[in-house]
Every structure is written in C-alpha cells, then in structure tokens.
C-alpha cells in the first residue's frame, strides 16, 4: 500500500468495466479492510470497555454467538466452495477475499466466546446450535457441492449474508461494547458480500431469464428455514416482537429487486 493518498476527480466517472475490476480486486479489499480493522485486535479496540453481564445475559449471548459461529462456518465453507465453480477469474478473486473475511469472522466470534469464559467453544457450539441454522448450512453446502452456481450464490450471498447483515446490525445496537465492535466490523465486510451476490445474480438473471425459475425454487425451499432462523436469533438477542418484521426487510428488498417476488 502506498503512503500517499491519490486524488480521484469523481469516482462516478469511472467506466463500468473499470469499476468492476477495481472493486473485485484483492488490492481494493486490502485497502478497504485496513480502514476499519487497523488498530483492532480480534475485531475490537484493545481499550473497549468490558461491561459486566448477569449470568442470564451471558448465557443468552453465548447461545447467540454459537449460532453466529455456525452461520460463519457455513459462509466460510460456502465461499471457499464457490471459488471453484465461479464463472470467471474476477469472481474467483472476489470470493477469495470473501473467504478470508468469513474466516476472520469465525475467528473473532470464537475469540469473543473465549473472552466470555467459554473454555471449549467447539463443544459449546455443538451443544447450542439451532436445528434451523444447521439445516440451512447443510442445504447451502449441498447446492455448492452440486455446482449449481446461481442457486448456491443465492443461498450464500443473498439469503445468508442478508440475514447476517441485518441481525448483526440490529444486535450491535444493544450489545455490550466489545461484542458491538466485533459485530460492526463484520457488518462492514457483509456490505461487500451482499452487494456481490445481488449484482452477480442480477447480471446472470438479466442474461438468462430462464434461470429465475430455478432461483425461485431455491427461495421457496429455503424461505421457511430463513424465517425460523431469524425468529430464533432475534428471540435470543431479546429484540421486542414489535421490531421483528423489520429484520427481514433487507432480504425481502433484495429478492424483490431481483424480480423473485415474495412467496
């Protein structure tokens, strides 16, 4: 990275091809994450205040973080698998940066569990993981394994990432300062992931509209699981019922923009 700051007259004057090349590059990713991860250790500033939690608050937080770990493990395995079936080098390079992000997310969440006194996070995840997120992971990896690019991308970068983006953003608003910083850092990565998924899928559906039926099928197949997973997580975070409908908004807006409708 250069120490001098290059000036850009107006970024919106870039040609579309130049924009695509730039934002999908490892160089772009490296300079972007440097902006918000510099000075952090395991996703939070070393001087972030650790607020005391009651036993029940701590227990609820551990359950939530264990489920986040399952989601991030699915995302890590999914993104890694997608590299092999991505249709071109640009998307492969981007997915490599996403796999790095997902690995980091898993690591910081496991570390946070350690900070909360969980001696064996792997065993705790095994014990506390919800059936719906485990089932979602199984189905996502089956789509990746079947080399169904559009369907797997939809499940991973539209459904899973939109769910994580919304839930983490909401949770960060009420979490203790350390957990909040960890989640806010993850949300910044998730912006790239949801954008990549929607744009890549949008392009594919524009070029091959007949693929929309297949994606609609996957959506119908996974929607119930998504809703169940949302419901379980928000209950554990302690979000009031009146605010829950908002949580699905990002996902529903994305499927609507992609012309996939609401089932």
């Amino acid at each position: 990275m250069s120490g001098t700051r290059e000036r850009v007259s107006d970024v919106h004057d870039l040609a579309p091809e130049a924009f695509e090349r730039e934002v999908h590059s490892f160089e772009f990713w490296f300079q972007a994450v440097e902006g918000y991860l510099h000075g952090t250790t395991y996703g939070h500033r070393p001087d972030a205040a650790a607020t005391p939690l009651t036993d029940s608050e701590r227990d609820r937080l551990v359950t939530v973080l264990c489920n986040y770990c399952v989601g991030e493990t699915a995302a890590l395995e999914g993104a890694s698998g997608l590299v092999a079936i991505a249709p071109n080098r640009m998307t492969k390079v981007f997915l490599a940066t996403q796999a790095v992000d997902e690995g980091r997310h898993l690591e910081v969440l496991l570390h946070r569990l350690g900070e909360l006194g969980v001696a064996n996070p792997e065993a705790e995840i095994e014990k506390r993981a919800s059936a719906s997120i485990l089932e979602f992971r199984r189905r996502l990896l089956a789509l990746v394994g079947s080399k169904d690019w559009e369907a797997a991308l939809f499940a991973q970068n539209v459904i899973l990432e939109a769910m994580e983006f919304t839930v983490f953003q909401t949770h960060a608003q009420t979490a203790d300062p350390i957990t909040a910083q960890v989640l806010q850092g993850i949300v910044k990565d998730e912006r790239r992931h949801i954008g990549f998924g929607e744009n890549e899928l949008g392009r594919r559906l524009r070029e091959s509209p007949h693929r929309r039926a297949r994606i609609g099928e996957v959506k119908r197949d996974l929607d119930a699981l998504v809703i169940e997973t949302f419901a379980e997580t928000v209950r554990d975070i302690g979000i009031p019922a009146s605010e829950r409908p908002d949580l699905g908004r990002a996902y529903l807006a994305a499927v609507s923009r992609l012309g996939l409708g609401v089932s």
């Binding site: 970024v11 919106h12 870039l14 579309p16 924009f19 730039e22 934002v23 999908h24 772009f28 912006r191 790239r192 949801i194 954008g195 990549f196 929607e198 744009n199």
Partner: peptide
C-alpha cells in the same frame, strides 16, 4: 450513473 463502492453496486 453512480457507484456504491461499499457494496460494489452500479
């Protein structure tokens, strides 16, 4: 035309 570089959207 504008670009969102945060989520890579045109």
């Amino acid at each position: 035309r504008v670009y969102c570089m945060a989520c890579m959207t045109r």
